[in-house]
Amino acid sequence: MRIPCPYCGPRDSSEFAYLGDAAPRRPADGDAAAMATYVYLRDNPAGPMEELWYHAYGCRAWLVVRRDTRDHAVTGARLAAGREASA
């Protein structure tokens, strides 16, 4: 599986560390229940999903990678740092 890193170009997935679903946002208002949801609850969709990957053996950028969980087809990746602006 290859991930198109915006900095480094298409690279082998073994260079990356996987975190998981990119959708949850860290709650900023100190709500314990919302934080528990953020820390523990994840969806497990079959289909396209946006995920956080870290280019550990490359540029060390965190990426939002769009991957289909059914066939591992990767259809895009962008820097996590700019995700609010581009979303």
Binding site: L52, R60, W62, L79, A80, A81
Partner: peptide, 14 residues
């Protein structure tokens, strides 16, 4: 820790 700090900066508080 390096990965975690990069996450905190790039994902949480860019």
């Amino acid at each position: 820790v390096m990965q975690h700090l990069a996450f905190c900066h790039q994902v949480l508080w860019p």
